Simulated assay, not measured.
Amino acid sequence: MSKVKVFIIEDDFIHANRLEMYLDEMGYELAGTAVGASQALNLIAATKPDLLLVDIHLAGDRDGIQIVENINKKKAIPVIFITSYRDKETFERAKLTDPYVYILKPYDKETLQAAIELTVYKISKINDTQIQNNYHGWNNDRLVKDELFIKSNGILIKIKLSDILYVEAKDKMCIIGMAEELIETRMSLQKLEEKLPIDRFLRIHRSFIINTKEISQINLSKNEVQLGPYKVPIGRSYKEPFINSIDSNID
């Protein structure tokens, strides 16, 4: 598990400090900051952030829109534009770079929080569609860095799919079991199941989904599987489909 990494491009010291403070209070990781094009492009390539907060009006030969255009030529990163410019021309230029959200100054922490959550939600929806449309040939490129974005304890976090051992529905929430920690989220088991690639994850009980790539032992006499330090039950009605799935993978 890791925090969502946010990179700031802002040449106003006061606004940059405010953004850093807000991100820290909201539980996000600051990937880095830059005041201009060359600095931003070099640091973004090195830090690989999940999303960008970009002020449009910057000192120098390139503004925020031009920097994002340059980034998009290599690898598009979700962008939230922040600006005091309210003219239609600026908005139309910004729109061509496909930003996720456009915030006008002045803004508060709640506005920024909503913008980031909306951006991550849009990313996850795109990934869900790609998984559903391409599940036969699913690969890591179908998800952003092979990661799942979820909200836990009021904070957006990202989890590598390969780190998930199992998911359990419990008391109107879900527990995501990983080798060294358990993460709680209010997302339903059904919603999580929709987000997980079917060539790797399988429901074996009405309350459990497992990562089939991480099975270390199967005990059919006890109707359970071992995944890392965890033992997960196999539901009676799920047993035959589970065995058939394992047999087909062996073949």
Rank of each mutant, 00 (worst) to 15 (best):
S2N: 13
K3V: 01
D11Q: 01
D11T: 00
D12Y: 02
A16D: 05
N17L: 09
E25A: 07
L30G: 04
A31Q: 10
T33Y: 07
S38T: 11
N42P: 01
L43C: 06
T47Y: 03
L51K: 10
A59P: 02
I65W: 01
V68S: 05
K73W: 03
A76F: 15
I77C: 07
V79G: 12
V79Y: 07
I82K: 08
D98R: 09
Y100N: 08
Y100A: 13
V101D: 10
Y102K: 11
I103T: 06
K105I: 00
P106R: 10
E110R: 08
Q113T: 15
E117F: 08
E117I: 14
L118G: 11
T119H: 06
K122C: 13
T129F: 12
Y135Q: 11
N140G: 08
F149P: 00
N153Y: 14
G154E: 11
I155D: 10
I155C: 06
K158A: 04
K158C: 06
V167K: 01
A169W: 05
K172Y: 15
M178P: 00
E184K: 12
M187E: 08
L192R: 00
I198Y: 05
R206V: 13
I210E: 01
N211D: 00
K213Q: 12
I215M: 02
Y230S: 02
K231G: 05
K239Q: 15
E240S: 10
P241E: 08
N244P: 02
I246R: 08
D251E: 11
